[in-house]
């Protein structure tokens, strides 16, 4: 019988950067390998089962974004990194819940090295749908580039995915397309004001 080998961190990172079915396999693998441990940690630290699940998904999403953008530099194993993100996220949620701001600050400082990730969620979901409408008004190539960029893919990966010559071409394309989007937002004063008021948790 063939032995099924677990993918190495290096392989998992590669799978995530390439996206598609390989990325989904990598995500399932990471969930299987780390999910229970993270959820147990949160439950043992006053979290409910639902909160544990939310934090796990937040952490995996942050990790994906950081791998894609190159912010994760491989200084620790993926499991360690994911666990650190989840812990930090949980402390933030917990501090908010219990209003223990000082405690949160202390933990944040301890975990400053894992600050790189962005764990944001939209307060006003309808703004997301307005932005999606605006994106839909861009032509397909622009829409794809901006979508990849918002998902934190590096310019190299965007160039590969879009068949551009190099990352500079991708950068120029993103620059022009995002400028178009900014102009559309600018023409909609109400949306512009709403975006200015948004706060992320």
């Amino acid at each position: 019988m063939l032995k099924v080998l677990s993918p190495s961190d290096h392989q998992l990172i590669d799978m995530i950067k390439k996206g598609g079915a390989g990325e989904e396999r990598a995500i399932r693998h990471l969930l299987k390998r780390n999910g229970e441990m993270i959820k147990t940690f949160i439950r043992k630290n006053n979290g409910s089962a639902e909160e544990a699940e939310e934090v796990l998904y937040d952490a995996i999403t942050s990790m994906l974004f950081n791998i894609r953008s190159g912010k994760f530099e491989g200084q620790s194993s993926l499991s360690t990194y994911l666990f650190a993100i989840a812990k930090r996220r949980w402390y933030k949620v917990f501090a908010k819940r219990t209003n223990h701001e000082q405690q949160h600050q202390d933990w944040s400082e301890t975990l400053e090295q894992h600050e790189a990730f962005e764990d944001r969620s939209l307060v006003q979901a309808e703004t997301g749908s307005i932005l999606a409408d605006l994106l839909a008004r861009l032509h397909q190539g622009c829409r794809e580039v901006i979508t990849f960029w918002s998902q934190h893919y590096s310019m190299d990966e965007i160039a590969k995915a879009m068949g551009y010559k190099n990352s500079q071409v991708a950068m120029n394309k993103k620059s022009n397309c995002f400028k178009q989007l900014l102009m559309m937002v600018n023409d909609n004063p109400q949306l512009r004001a709403t975006l200015a008021e948004l706060r992320y948790t």
Partner: peptide, 18 residues
């Protein structure tokens, strides 16, 4: 304006990925 639009887009992408 640049940051607000970018951050809203990225927050939307975050929710979709999650």
């Amino acid at each position: 304006h640049y940051r607000n639009t970018r951050d809203a887009l990225r927050a939307g992408a975050f929710q979709a990925e999650k």
